[in-house]
Simulated scan of single mutants.
Amino acid sequence: MIKPEISVCIPAYEMDGHGAGYLEILLQKLEEQDFRDFEVVVSDQSTDNRIEDMCNDWSDRLNIYHVWNREAPRQASANINHALDCAEGGILKVLFQDDYLCDRSCLAHVHQRFMETGCDWLLCGSGVVRDGDTIERAMVPSLNEKLHFGKNTVSSPSVLAIHRRCVERFDENLIWLMDVEFYKRLWEAKGEPEILPTTLVANRIHAYQVSNRVDRRLQARELDYVWRKYAAKSTTSGKLEYLKRRMKTIFST
């Protein structure tokens, strides 16, 4: 069996009844991609069958695989790891179900850069969308010494692609800091990423996203966990970022 060049890896769940609708928009954008040698892997933690039904409806238009992941911890880190582990492509492109590719040449650009450079990981430009159409706040990803403590200058995991030789996976102890800690770990293990500055990914802002449900106790717990992992290796600016954010979990109202 010939394996695809790219696997688009999507962690999915019902998202208060909106998950299937967001996923359909994502799949529509994938269908429009100029680059065609890709598969779609949907790891599903839903309690209903709407995501599975959506994947079945699209199976004649996209090379799409629906895989259940109901037994794992119900969180994005475990769910995206399952999608990555089920993927067959040489390049693993992360894409969350409420985000989408806003440029039809996105996968072509990603593939070309991997082929030209032989890189291990890549980040692309992004923006946010509130109304399903207009892209705002264009952002070119960059790394910084405060990254793992929440100073996110990269954006969401949907801007990330890794080569399948990368064995690193998201830390399943994390929810709020799962993305920035992973970027930090890839940076340490693989060096600088390739950067595609063009806005290729739309990050949707909506009432049902996980970040709206993060409370101070979870923030404090995750900051302390990341501190224990990286205190010895963090720069002075990183340590100060930890202290600043940790104090906010105590004194913010």
Rank of each mutant, 00 (worst) to 15 (best):
P193R: 01
S43A: 13
E31P: 06
N152M: 08
L26H: 01
M115W: 11
V140R: 05
A83S: 13
Y230M: 11
Q112V: 06
M54G: 05
L123R: 00
E24M: 08
A78S: 15
P73V: 08
L177D: 06
R137C: 00
S237C: 13
P141V: 02
C86K: 11
P197V: 06
L223F: 14
Q112W: 05
T253H: 09
K151R: 07
G132C: 06
P141H: 04
E39W: 08
I205Y: 00
Y183V: 04
G150T: 03
L143I: 07
G191L: 11
N173Y: 05
N212V: 11
K29Y: 09
A189M: 12
E39I: 12
R217L: 14
N69R: 01
D131T: 01
A83Q: 05
H109T: 08
N173D: 15
C124Y: 04
F182Y: 13
R165P: 02
C106I: 09
K239L: 15
E88Q: 11
E116R: 04
V42S: 03
H82F: 13
N49T: 13
G125F: 01
L223T: 10
E116L: 09
K190A: 09
A83P: 03
V94C: 11
C166P: 00
D131G: 05
I162L: 11
C106N: 08
R246T: 10
V94R: 05
R216Y: 12
E5K: 10
Q219T: 12
E71W: 09
N173E: 15
L240G: 02
V128N: 12
G118E: 02
M247S: 14
F182L: 13
P73Y: 05
T153V: 01
Q209K: 12
I91T: 09
G238A: 08
F96H: 04
Q33S: 14
G191W: 08
I6V: 12
